[in-house]
Amino acid sequence: MTDAQYLNDACADKFPGFLGITTTEVGDSGVVAEMAVSPHHLAPNGFLHAGSVVSLADTACGNGCIALLPEGAAGFTTVELKSNHLGTVREGTIQCVAKPVHKGRTTQVWDATVSCQQTDKVLALFRCTQMILYPK
């Protein structure tokens, strides 16, 4: 099983690392990741940019997919994602809890909930599908 430190190291110099996304828990039942809200996460209107929320959720689900890749798989790619945004914040830390819904040999489907850590207010619901990649 891949651990949180491995995933954080892999993301450190990539887009998730730039955003400050940190994976805090990894297991068979899912992944927990968080991101402290900074000015560069905000839209021009001063509220959290939807892309920041989607990036957190997609990273959590993607890291979960990495941790649960089937034997022989070389990786994955996201083929579909959907988000429903229910609220926003201007500061604090947002957290994503991602859980696998389907762990197949060719696809995985993940659901995630993004919330404000300080208030537990749900900010977004997210679902994505990943295609599992195998060596040629």
Rank of each mutant, 00 (worst) to 15 (best):
L125R: 14
Q95K: 15
S38H: 09
T113I: 15
L7K: 11
I21F: 03
L48S: 02
I21C: 06
G17W: 02
V37Q: 06
K136L: 01
S38Y: 02
F15M: 15
D13L: 11
L68K: 07
T23G: 03
E34L: 09
G27P: 07
P135E: 09
T59N: 08
V37F: 03
V122T: 10
N63H: 07
Q108C: 12
D3E: 12
T129S: 14
L125Q: 12
K82W: 00
T77C: 10
T106I: 06
L48K: 01
R90W: 05
E25F: 11
L86A: 14
T2A: 13
P16V: 03
T129K: 11
T119R: 12
D28W: 04
Y134N: 04
L133H: 03
Q117T: 08
K14C: 15
A60Y: 01
Q95V: 15
T88I: 01
I21P: 01
R127C: 10
G64D: 11
K82R: 12
T2Y: 12
S83W: 00
Q130F: 13
G27D: 10
F76W: 15
R127A: 13
K82E: 11
S38A: 11
L68N: 12
M35C: 08
T113Y: 09
C11H: 10
G17H: 03
T24S: 15
I132S: 01
P70N: 05
A36R: 14
D120N: 10
G20N: 03
V79H: 14
K121C: 04
E91R: 15
T107Q: 08
C61K: 09
A67M: 05
D13R: 14
T77Q: 13
V114E: 04
E71G: 08
A67D: 01
F18L: 15
L56E: 01
Q108H: 15
K136A: 06
N84C: 11
L56T: 02
V32P: 10
G27I: 04
T23V: 08
V54M: 12
K82T: 06
Y134H: 07
T107S: 12
L42I: 00
H40R: 06
A124G: 14
Q130H: 14
F76V: 09
Q5V: 05
I66W: 08
N63Y: 08
G72P: 00
A33W: 07
G92F: 01
C128N: 14
P70Y: 04
L125A: 10
Q95G: 11
Q130E: 13
V54W: 00
Q5H: 10
H49M: 01
K136F: 00
